[in-house]
Design a protein around this nucleic acid. Structure first.
Lengths: 132, 132
DNA sequence: ACTTGAGCTTCCAGCGGCTGGAACCCCTAT
DNA sequence: ATAGGGGTTCCAGCCGCTGGAAGCTCAAGT
């Protein structure tokens, strides 16, 4: 199967698949004409990476997960450790964004948003400690 | 005031301040010896950018906000429009992360995390549609 | 048989937002 | 005089792609 088909089936753009090969994440066979040739198993791995990426794993983490995915004898604890760590990161990001949201939301709420120059948002960005 | 002092007072690393000057976000005077020379007003602007960045505004948005900040006659509606748009982005990000958190959390919860190779996380990454 | 157009190949460059490092200059204290 | 801790420039690299150019190959239509 050519890269375009593999792309459609995995949900990854061809460019990205080539990039993954470039960085040694996933390799593919080559057909006689030099085209990359993907097996169904290759497509499974591509989908696996696509999903892992969309769940917030970095490419390096995907590399680890992929080797755990391939190693049928790995301990589930190894996988869980990576996933749990990522869960913590996601939680931290959510907390951070929630804090930002509260702060920015507060500023926006207090801004009349009319033609006048008085603007609590600008004032707030100038000095977040004071009361707006 | 030298760049190091401005850095300490604004909360931005000197490298970042030079970078901002490079991309034309904030310029500084030069002293006779060629050193950048920051006024208190410059430091205010640096802090303003630092805060805007930390609230999730892109550098380009900071450029807009900065010109609104500098323009004492601007309408607060202009500022509010940018901030409200950003608020929407933050909300979308939070929603996305919350979804990820739920999915990954579900996978992690169902994984024993022991020495056995059975692993719902790996299975889930292989095929998110099936039941784990 | 020839052309067209889609799809494949490689390689190089650039995005955003810094950050590290090299090589050099300047200022102050000892 | 010298040592250090500033400052200056410029170039390169991080991550994870993405766009584009130039050139192949293949299948379909005329």
């Amino acid at each position: 199967m050519n890269i375009g088909t593999a792309a459609r089936q995995s949900g990854l753009p061809p460019k990205t698949i080539r990039y993954y090969e470039d960085i040694g994440l996933l390799t593919a066979d080559r057909a006689a004409n030099g085209y990359r040739d993907y097996s169904n198993e290759d497509v499974h791995r591509l989908r696996f990476v696509q999903r892992s990426r969309s769940l917030g794993f970095s490419v390096e983490e995907c590399r680890q997960l992929l080797s755990l995915y391939t190693d049928r004898d790995r301990a589930s604890a190894d996988v869980k450790a990576i996933a749990t760590e990522k869960l913590g990161e996601i939680d931290r990001k959510i907390a951070e964004l929630t804090g930002l949201r509260a702060m920015l939301g507060h500023l926006v709420e207090n801004c009349y948003g009319d033609a006048r120059p008085e603007c609590p948002i600008i004032d707030g960005l100038s000095d977040l400690t004071s009361d707006h």
